[in-house]
């Protein structure tokens, strides 16, 4: 009875790929931040407009918001609710149902460990345990310096390569713990 007790914890969320604009916004200084965010809201508005502000487009719009902002912060959800004329609780309910939507910012880099059956049979859980030990975080968490998020995926569909991982959108197969840790270090060094 340990981790399961927290209603807020999502188990092994699959993770959005981070967009270029997200990285950019992190680097931007405070002065340009406001402008930057206005531009992002505009992009979101465009998407809503393209869907004729129809409530049914909620998931499409949240995809766009996640891509644009990196995660779904409260103001963004409010903006979407207003734009699509939806109750706040409905928007929140949908945003938290789907594992690809994140209400918290993720790390600069992501390492996804595939936990599908084929990978499991070939030792993915041991691999994950080693990575958790190496990074000092649990699956679904981000290191305290915000550098890297460790995530689990249900199945990335490359079962022939089990066990497989995805570091910053690049798939690598037939992994050993040492190989993956090296790749993570390389990614962090960039």
């Amino acid at each position: 009875m340990s981790v399961q007790n927290q209603p807020t914890a999502t188990v092994a969320p699959e993770k959005p790929q981070k967009s270029a604009s997200d990285n950019k916004s992190k680097k931007s200084d405070n002065k340009s931040k406001k402008k930057e965010s206005d531009r992002r809201y505009k992009a979101l508005d465009m998407t809503m407009k393209r869907h004729h502000y129809e409530a049914d487009a909620l998931i499409e719009v949240l995809h766009k918001a996640q891509d644009t902002f990196g995660y779904l912060e409260e103001d963004v959800l409010r903006h979407v609710a207003k734009g699509l004329k939806l109750p706040l609780s409905r928007v929140y309910g949908v945003a938290t149902f789907y594992h690809l939507f994140s209400l918290k910012p993720g790390g600069e880099h992501t390492c996804v460990v595939c936990l599908g059956t084929a990978c499991h049979v070939k030792g993915a859980s041991e691999l994950l345990a080693d990575l958790e030990a190496e990074l000092g975080i649990k699956v679904g968490e981000t290191t305290s310096d915000g550098k890297i998020s460790l995530l689990g995926a249900r199945c990335i569909g490359t079962c022939g390569l089990a066990p497989a991982i995805v570091i910053d959108e690049v798939v690598s197969g037939k992994q050993t713990s040492e190989e993956t840790i090296k790749q993570i270090k390389d990614a962090l060094a960039q």
Binding site: Q6, P7, T8, L77, A81, L88, S89, Y92
Partner: peptide, 19 residues
């Protein structure tokens, strides 16, 4: 429409507004 269900599975709970 104050209420809705958020999260999923065993973590589901009733939510008011934006939580």
């Amino acid at each position: 429409h104050v209420w809705d269900v958020s999260q999923r599975g065993e973590f589901c709970h009733i939510t008011s507004g934006l939580d």
